[in-house]
């Protein structure tokens, strides 16, 4: 899936994460993670981000994660929202995101 334009989802409140996503046409994935729990959960965050991108078939994007201690499902939800906004489509409810 191709991103049409930059998009943001989430906030910088505690327990939330702000995802900023930019088209990165033909340049692959560029994921940058800032997190207050990076030492313990940096790898887990990266894995979730990659998983959601793959579920949407997004192969070219630059993703900036600014994490304030969000649980995994919050990161998932914010990633999904940012991608949906970036591709200007509703979430695929029938496929439940897959």
């Amino acid at each position: 899936m191709q991103l049409k334009h930059p998009a943001v989802a989430g906030t910088l409140e505690s327990s939330d994460v702000q995802v900023t996503i930019h088209p990165n046409n033909g340049m692959g994935l560029d994921i940058r993670i800032e997190s207050i729990v990076k030492a313990q959960f940096g790898d887990a965050i990266l894995e979730t981000v990659r998983e959601v991108l793959a579920a949407f078939g997004v192969t070219d994007a630059s993703v900036q994660i600014n994490d304030k201690g969000a649980l995994d499902w919050v990161i998932r939800a914010r990633m999904q929202a940012a991608i949906c906004r970036g591709v200007e489509r509703s979430f695929d409810w029938e496929g439940e995101g897959v």
């Binding site: 030492a39 313990q40 959960f41 790898d43 887990a44 649980l71 995994d72």
Partner: peptide, 9 residues
Amino acid sequence: SFTGKPKQI
């Protein structure tokens, strides 16, 4: 169950 398993420092 909320946080996942933290990596050892």
